Amino acid sequence: MPAETEPHRCTWMAWPSAGYTLGDSEADADEARGVWAAVAHAVAEFEPVRMVADPSAARVARDWLGSDVEVLEAPLDDAWMRDIGPTFVVGPDGLGAVDWVFNGWGAQPWARWEHDARVACQVAEWAGATVVPSAMVNEGGGIHVDGQGAVLVTETVQLDPGRNPSWTRASVEEELRRTLGVQRVVWLPRGLTRDYDEFGTRGHVDIVATMPSPGTVLLHAQPDDSHPDHAVMEVVRAAVPDDLAIVDLPAPEVLTDEDGPVDYSYLNHYVCNGGVVACVFDDPRDGTALESLAAAYPGREVVGVDARPLFARGGGVHCITQQEPLVQVVGP
């Protein structure tokens, strides 16, 4: 699996069309459509975007997205392409697409996944990729690779009883080596506190840590010790191997919303060709975070999208995007 920083052919997304993602009112639905469209347009400044839309919502998607984004139609339950789509890999025969088992983030009682469980194969077909089947329940938000053989995971995702009740660390590592071509699996203990609430993922790594370059871990930090994630991140930090350099990315100053402690994180950004699309929160720390991301990804333009409507629905910018790497064709 190439690092996210390597060249992309395009970005895949999925359009919100039903359920809690759209919300209970037309105003809620327009808020969701607006933020998905904002991310798509931001990414489209750097590379092509292909949006999968349920046939019932395809016309609405085209109205919001205009000519900048290609819309393809397939049945959907939800709109988190990072998790329901394939994980693209590159091998001797070209582009591959790992088709993880998707079961609604560990068979969550509110989730529906009849259609989403089939999206990865459909996207792989559109991309012209060879499907790499996997028997492991996993999502794209549960892994981060450096492109040089290392992958970050969390114990509460791949070893979740709702996902892989009979799997061990050893069997998970073996499957990650087989599907992603990694040699080193770095286990972090858990995710952020809010991620274990009703609409959480039970610990996705892509809101906690990433590897902007080999040997470096960009890590979420919560400076305020009144927030539960302050203690959580001390435990996570202690689990990062000593040979990896840690760069802290402090959380926004806002600590709570009407539902309790927030999990706002600048870690849930998306790296694309020549750019980084970052989460911002109308927060005093937004500017510093964008500067830190520019330093972590030198030579890339960093743009912010207000991610509060995404986080209110259980995710961020990285959660709704999925990169398709550019496969270099070598001639005879």
Rank of each mutant, 00 (worst) to 15 (best):
residue 154 T to K: 01
residue 194 R to Y: 10
residue 187 W to A: 04
residue 112 R to A: 14
residue 121 C to F: 04
residue 202 R to N: 11
residue 151 V to Q: 02
residue 205 V to L: 01
residue 202 R to V: 00
residue 135 A to C: 07
residue 197 D to Q: 15
residue 201 T to D: 14
residue 137 V to P: 00
residue 194 R to V: 13
residue 176 L to P: 01
residue 136 M to H: 03
residue 191 G to E: 00
residue 145 V to C: 15
residue 172 V to I: 08
residue 172 V to N: 03
residue 155 E to S: 12
residue 121 C to V: 14
residue 139 E to W: 08
residue 175 E to S: 12
residue 121 C to R: 15
residue 107 A to F: 00
residue 148 Q to E: 15
residue 181 G to L: 08
residue 163 R to I: 02
residue 112 R to F: 04
residue 206 D to H: 11
residue 150 A to I: 04
residue 119 V to K: 01
residue 207 I to G: 15
residue 145 V to L: 05
residue 168 T to F: 01
residue 161 P to Q: 09
residue 179 T to L: 02
residue 196 Y to R: 10
residue 147 G to F: 12
residue 178 R to T: 13
residue 197 D to K: 12
residue 111 A to S: 07
residue 152 L to R: 07
residue 171 S to L: 04
residue 133 P to Q: 13
residue 186 V to T: 12
residue 207 I to M: 15
residue 166 S to G: 06
residue 198 E to F: 10
residue 164 N to P: 00
residue 201 T to H: 05
residue 173 E to L: 04
residue 134 S to I: 03
residue 196 Y to K: 09
residue 168 T to R: 06
residue 199 F to T: 13
residue 208 V to Y: 05
residue 190 R to V: 02
residue 193 T to A: 15
residue 151 V to S: 03
residue 188 L to A: 10
residue 181 G to F: 06
residue 117 A to P: 00
residue 188 L to H: 08
residue 129 A to G: 12
residue 126 W to E: 13
residue 134 S to E: 03
residue 140 G to C: 04
residue 198 E to I: 11
residue 148 Q to K: 14
residue 191 G to F: 02
residue 130 T to K: 13
residue 112 R to L: 06
residue 205 V to T: 04
residue 170 A to V: 08
residue 150 A to L: 08
residue 195 D to A: 11
residue 189 P to Y: 05
residue 138 N to D: 12
residue 204 H to D: 07
residue 148 Q to A: 15
residue 114 E to V: 11
residue 162 G to P: 01
